[in-house]
Amino acid sequence: MKIRIDHERCRGAGQCALHAPELFDQSDDDGTVVLLDAEPPPELEDSARLAAALCPNSVITIIES
């Protein structure tokens, strides 16, 4: 699995950092998404999918391998 983010769309709601903190953080400068791991290990793939599903601005794209 690969994770892509479209940073321009992010408004910092924080759903990703809340539901998948191993993969996403929020910037101290403007609260927008910081991708910590673009190729999550198998055990975090469900969290990545959940973060993508809950993002209010479709910032996160999951590319299933």
Partner: peptide, 9 residues
């Protein structure tokens, strides 16, 4: 953008 950083997780 100005406000979000004050309300992060």
């Amino acid at each position: 953008r100005m406000l979000t950083r004050y309300f992060t997780v």
